[in-house]
Design a binder for these strands. Structure first.
Lengths: 352, 352
DNA sequence: AACGGTCATTGGAGCGTTCAAATCAGTCTT
DNA sequence: AAGACTGATTTGAACGCTCCAATGACCGTT
């Protein structure tokens, strides 16, 4: 059976093409009686609008691009996966779809934007892993491409909408929990200074250590590249201190699991002997019983799409038509939407 | 700057629309001289074909649908993530894109097919997680929708192309490795009988146990629901046997990690005291040093797309290209492509 | 009865592309 | 030298949809 088109539905309901179109896209314009008649015809013929045709006309594809990361060292990779999963589900509920692409670095990612925009005309992008001087956001902003980022515009002039999770709040909660459990010597095992996310997470620990008057000794604040091996070595160094910490707050589950490994190798029980708290609530953390700070990824995905919706709504005309009639000046371009900063949640397990 | 169209490129190169189109899609039809001229114009104007317009005309979207799974219990979820990552990269290299969707169950998935096909006209689907009497494959096959599955058509009449990893081969390799290491009492910890994948993995162990004349005692073959807790309990039961096994081959990393947890809780060292081998090579396995059977997911993704290409090629909705080079002899509907069965690889770590 | 005004509906045009058929020049055949 | 053939290119139409301007029908007001 040939697929139904607007035309065939219109004939079947004895109205014009346009009326059917209106019944679909602007129901308030059509008379209630005809509306029901048209709707009956639609369901009877099992009609669905042809996406490509609509896109061609409206310049709106309902497609949102997202980058899927190459498989990194491992433990933390699942965060993106969970985010994508939520993003897909949320987008689907809104009648949008998520289109995947990969890129090795930011520059390549921009090249893909170019391809995807001019070839496939996506409506928008959801970026993640923002950092200072992110050329991707600059690229997109310059071309007026709608996008939001999962991750705040670290340092730079954030002229775009973003959603992020408050890392400092997470480590603060972790530290507060450890203080409540009686710990006084709480160390931080994070990344080298200069990484925005890392510094943010460190600051939460530092804040609370200061506020609670904790005993912060030299060597209680380590910064190493992310990884199990590096985490383990750094933890070993801490444990070898003259007065070792009784608890370690970590910037990632990788580091925390490194520390965890070192503890068990020394015959120390995580939690009972030395407490360890990770970050991101990876599945591995759940398996070995590592307390960890969980990001509300589903909320983040929902917030991203809500924000994207607003951006798309206020930014309708994209790219001037060739006929000279550029869109109405509309006064000043409305500012970016209000950013959203979500609080993570500490998941307490055996390790602390 | 308004975007370039075929028309504007044509004017710029002083040829007709169609010639530009041919330069792109059927270069052999156009004179070498004009070809270079047109190509110059294309790159000068930075022209990219408009995807929606092309789709509208050709009924080919270059979009492939794939389902992303809701977040399951955890450890094994990453397999799909890695598969998707590879699939995206491979599709990208072929000029195709992966479109995500989610569904709670097979029935819902079929409903989404309907939506995606009639609304968005995807070209094809890549399914995963096939099982006996899979209504999804029946649904798609009946409607002549091109698709391939990652996972063989267990039991049912496989009239479609599929790619799978030989699970039995994996457990066979694991068992063989343990035998070579001197083990004689090797148990299998898997899922209850009736799950196709589980039975397949069990059979590899059973095969080799028989062939090598291993000492298989009652209680050496357990079948429990996948999970850490269940795996741990089942392992405990095995270790409590009068003559416990010295090694355990598992159907999943979840189960293996459960066993691993039980071992360490008893003060036994995995590998040194009792060997454990998992399946799927999850990141958690890598972290804790668990040997595991790794699936060649990147190869699988590549094979899926290669196969999909063949299916799309032989199943053109509107006759072949006009370029004469029409490949297949056109003799009736060609059968499904030859299935691909890949061998997994055992990754040996501390646990065995 | 003629007038503006709102509501419901319609037909034509066009989005950018490819398909099918037509054109036109040049070459080979008889 | 006229016809048939090949190769390179062009023209008109169509894909299914939405935008835009225009048409009627119906209303209350003069």
């Amino acid at each position: 059976m040939a697929r139904a088109t607007l035309e065939s539905v219109a004939r079947h309901a004895a109205v014009s093409r346009q009326t059917v179109s209106n019944a679909l896209n602007a129901p308030h314009l059509v008379h209630p009686d005809t509306l029901t008649r048209v709707r009956a015809a639609i369901s009877e013929l099992n009609y669905r609008p042809h996406h490509a045709a609509r896109t061609l006309r409206t310049r709106r594809s309902q497609l949102v691009g997202a980058r899927i990361e190459p498989w990194r060292d491992g433990v933390n990779g699942a965060v993106l996966d969970r985010f994508l999963q939520s993003l897909t589900a949320r987008a689907q509920a809104r009648g949008q779809r998520i289109l995947l692409f990969t890129a090795e670095d930011d520059e390549q990612e921009c090249a893909h934007y170019e391809d995807l925009l001019s070839g496939l005309d996506l409506d928008a992008f959801v970026l993640h892993g923002t950092h200072a001087d992110d050329r991707r956001t600059a690229w997109l902003a310059q071309r007026r491409v709608p996008f939001v980022t999962f991750g705040r515009p670290w340092g730079s002039t954030g002229t775009h909408g973003w959603v992020d999770v408050d890392g400092a709040e997470g480590t603060r909660a972790a530290t507060r929990h450890l203080v409540a459990a009686g710990h006084r010597r709480i160390a931080f095992l994070g990344w080298p200074e200069g990484s925005e996310v890392g510094d943010d997470r460190r600051s939460g620990w530092a804040d609370l250590a200061l506020a609670a008057g904790l005993e912060v000794r030299p060597g209680y604040d380590a910064g190493v590249a992310d990884g199990l091996g590096t985490g383990r070595a750094a933890a070993a160094a801490m444990l070898d201190l003259e007065v070792p910490p009784t608890a370690i707050v970590c910037a990632s589950d990788s580091l925390a699991l490194g520390a965890w490994t070192e503890l068990t190798a020394r015959g120390l029980r995580p939690g009972a002997d030395v407490a360890v708290v990770g970050f991101d609530d990876s599945t591995t953390a759940a398996v070995v019983g590592l307390s960890s700070v969980a990001q509300p990824l589903d909320d983040a995905a929902a917030a991203c799409l809500r924000m994207l919706h607003d951006v798309l709504e206020t930014d309708r005309p994209r790219g001037g038509r060739a006929d000279g009639t550029d869109g109405p000046p509309e006064g000043g371009r409305p500012g970016p939407p209000d950013p959203v900063l979500l609080s993570p949640q500490l998941v307490v397990r055996a390790s602390g």
